[in-house]
């Protein structure tokens, strides 16, 4: 029996254990769940060790300039370990601050340059609308109305002056209502797509179990043929 066959059998068995949840919470399902969590954690530790530690630590033994470049991150990483001890957790503050600060800076710059500016430009680009013909124009208009309406749906303030308040309710209020309709449609679509993804995984699991059983029967000769 090959390793692939053993893997196929174990995978099929574990899939059946997970699917036993259809009968409710039971020890077989819990067994598969614990195996999954344990294997995930163990695999994560192994990957981190191989990918990070075994790649970085040998650099300390070399005489290359990279030695200093690697030494600082290692020092920061060691300081971060003090976060696990309340008495000395302050030693890890600099590492934490560096992580949070750099992470926030990178994320903000990426969001600004990669999402906000390009998406805003795309919504208002009349050339893009016209490039797609009538369908592109309608699509662009719907996108524009939906975007503006969704933004107005989150406008929770209003001016106090009665005249401005009436104008506000007539414009922002109506736009917000339209935006809420778009939000409802978006949430519905998101739910439907998430359900589709889950069903696809279920179909794949059922397909894997059927194919696994078929292969096991064929390999072990239990089918009589």
């Amino acid at each position: 029996m090959t390793a692939d066959m053993i893997g196929l059998m174990v995978g099929t068995l574990l899939t059946l254990l997970v699917l036993s949840y259809i009968l409710g919470d039971n020890p077989l399902y819990r067994l598969a769940l614990h195996l999954l969590v344990g294997a995930t954690v163990g695999y994560g530790v192994a990957v981190t060790t191989v990918t990070v530690l075994q790649t970085v630590l040998p650099s300390l033994q070399s005489d290359s300039p990279d030695r200093v470049r690697v030494l600082i991150p290692i020092l920061l990483g060691i300081l971060l370990l003090f976060k696990g001890f309340p008495r000395w957790s302050a030693w890890g503050n600099f590492s934490t601050a560096l992580l949070v600060g750099v992470g926030a800076a990178v994320a903000v710059s990426g969001t600004l340059m990669g999402t906000i500016i390009p998406q805003t430009a795309a919504v208002g680009s009349l050339n893009d609308w016209l490039r797609g013909g009538s369908a592109g124009l309608i699509n662009g208009l719907i996108g524009m109305i939906g975007t503006v309406g969704a933004l107005l749906a989150f406008a929770f303030a209003a001016p106090r002056q009665p005249t401005l308040q009436r104008l506000w309710k007539g414009s922002v209020g109506v736009g917000g209502q339209i935006g809420r309709l778009f939000l409802l449609a978006a949430f519905g679509a998101a739910f439907g797509l998430a359900l589709t993804a889950s069903l696809t995984v279920l179909v794949g699991r059922v397909y894997a179990v059927v194919m696994g059983i078929q292969q096991i029967i064929t390999a072990t000769g239990m089918g009589g043929g």
Binding site: G110, T111, M113, G114, A186, A190, L193, A194, A197, T200
Partner: peptide, 27 residues
């Protein structure tokens, strides 16, 4: 998907990017 698209837009916006995504990420 957002992380990669945003960081590539900052680093090299001229590099063509294509995606293969799940149904959940399609929206």
């Amino acid at each position: 998907l957002k992380t990669w698209l945003e960081q590539i837009s900052v680093a090299r916006p001229d590099v063509p990017v294509v995606a293969g995504v799940s149904a959940r990420t399609e929206l």
